[in-house]
């Protein structure tokens, strides 16, 4: 369970928030010329990385404002929270805790079948 630092209200319990999935998803340009496959990708496919993930949250039971967040999905650590109109922080400014694509971090994983 997370404590999320709402940029407008300060730190609050995660139960006050709703997750809005991947952030910075752009609707494709030139919609008239786009094939079914590209549309399908835009509608259905979202990033799902193990590690650094850019996502959106909304403070549903608070100020009801949307904001962006960078979270490590392998540890659930929140690395940065920024307002919706702020620049996307660079990926290489964050440390990646997983050495292989499906590896386990040293801390924060409950996968005891793999952790040594």
């Amino acid at each position: 369970m997370l404590i999320i630092d709402c940029p407008y209200c300060g730190p609050r319990d995660q139960s006050e928030f709703s997750n809005g999935g991947e952030a910075h998803v752009k609707r494709p340009d030139g919609s008239a010329d786009i094939g079914d496959r590209e549309w399908g990708e835009y509608v259905f496919i979202r990033a799902n990385p193990k590690g650094i993930f850019y996502e959106r949250w909304v403070h549903s039971h608070g100020c009801r404002k949307w904001f962006n967040c960078v979270r490590d999905t392998s540890t659930d650590e929140i690395l940065k929270i920024y307002k919706i109109d702020e620049e996307r922080p660079k990926l290489d400014s964050f440390k990646n805790n997983v050495k292989t694509p499906s590896g386990e971090p040293n801390l924060g994983s409950g996968n005891f079948t793999v952790k040594k």
Binding site: M1, L2, Q14, N19, K50, S74, D76, S109
Partner: peptide
Amino acid sequence: DGYNSFTQRGGFD
């Protein structure tokens, strides 16, 4: 949980 995660734990809520 209401968000993506690979932690194999999940929230207490």
